[in-house]
Nucleic acid binder design. Sequence first.
DNA 1: CAGTGGTCTAGACCACGGG
DNA 2: CCGTGGTCTAGACCACTGA
Lengths: 239, 239
Amino acid sequence: MTLQRQPLYARAEAELRARIARGDWKPGESLPTEPALAADLGISQGTLRRALDGLERQRLIERRQGIGTHVAEATSERELFHFFRAETLEGGRVTPTSLAHSFETGRADAQEVRALKLARGAKVHRLLRERRIHGCPMILELIALPETLFPGFTMPVAAEVTDELYVHYQRRFGITIVRVEEKLQAVTATAMIGKTLQREEGWPLLLIHRVAFDVMDRPVERRQSWLETTRIRYAVELR
Amino acid sequence: MTLQRQPLYARAEAELRARIARGDWKPGESLPTEPALAADLGISQGTLRRALDGLERQRLIERRQGIGTHVAEATSERELFHFFRAETLEGGRVTPTSLAHSFETGRADAQEVRALKLARGAKVHRLLRERRIHGCPMILELIALPETLFPGFTMPVAAEVTDELYVHYQRRFGITIVRVEEKLQAVTATAMIGKTLQREEGWPLLLIHRVAFDVMDRPVERRQSWLETTRIRYAVELR
DNA sequence: CAGTGGTCTAGACCACGGG
DNA sequence: CCGTGGTCTAGACCACTGA
């Protein structure tokens, strides 16, 4: 399949990941049964299961005894729980609403080129939006997406905004986010940002630079988020 | 071993984890060979290997072909890389020095009781220290440890301060940290904290509330860290 | 060389879900 | 009931390490 120095189960895992990325099975669809898939790949069921273990840990597939194995579907519920780490002071989950401020398409700046590994002069879509919790503006986000990966991406309309953006990426563009890298820092609000978040200039904000990666580990989204952390916290677990 | 509803490999994993926590094999020591350990537990080698996989993912053991399996030893290198997420603006690793400010032992306050699941009135050790990067004070930390788990803990002397505290926990008290939970927020510096970090009052700081858990998933350390994030970033990965 | 963990296979049996 | 994934076993062979 690929390099020979890799064990068989790893090559099988890579092959299956590529097939899913290519869309052989769409999100929500079932994979063949284990014996069938093992025969197809020319490996034993045990080796196949080891490959599937890897994909399952990555949450790319879901397996259920008695039912079968299917490609995982991004849902607002799951994406919010996994990649949106804001919570209340007591640790409770929080469901934000979104409000788009502006949308444009233009040439990527130096930071975007580096973060998204783009060619110089490549175009990106930029979305500026505000997220509210219980009606209070808490987060301001600037999101950049390569035009080549998200052709025809436009300002999300009301119906789409109720879902997580990552659900939209998967359904409309076949892009599944599997991991994100973030760099955090404390900053003070500029006059413009402070106004949006209803705080005076100089108020402390948590600024998060995020890069999101897809199934093939390509960087596909750059996002800057300014959080007003008086009534929410950002929760992280390291292990 | 324990509950019957759990699969054999999970029970074996729990049993081995308990044996390691109990100190049957100390950090750095070798476990028996796989055939021997499998026979000892009365399970097949395949099932044992599945149990060991879990312990290895948790970084509790290390396996090397041709050598054997041994209990992982906390080293400054590893702990810094894993649980200390500060890095330079370019993403480079950073090695801080530590300077203890004060040490005391007293009754746990309400927050400490809750975070560390202590009985009311239990005692904790408290260490206040400063961490410098290239000579500049960047982080102020207040660390609370249950007295019962860290009997006789005293102000770390110079020699110990060069190592990560978590290495000290393992070597002196047999406590291995395997995961931490953190809540982050942006705050402004008080006059006292600002002075330590050489910034004026009102300067934005990243405040991290951390609880660290040991092998048996007991909370064993509470830590509050104030980071001056002008020249460092806090890096996180979610997957 | 002997001994360790790593890979891969084949097959029996169990547990779950749905007709 | 059948078909699915989940568990467990036994054993062959490979790859690495150190004497």
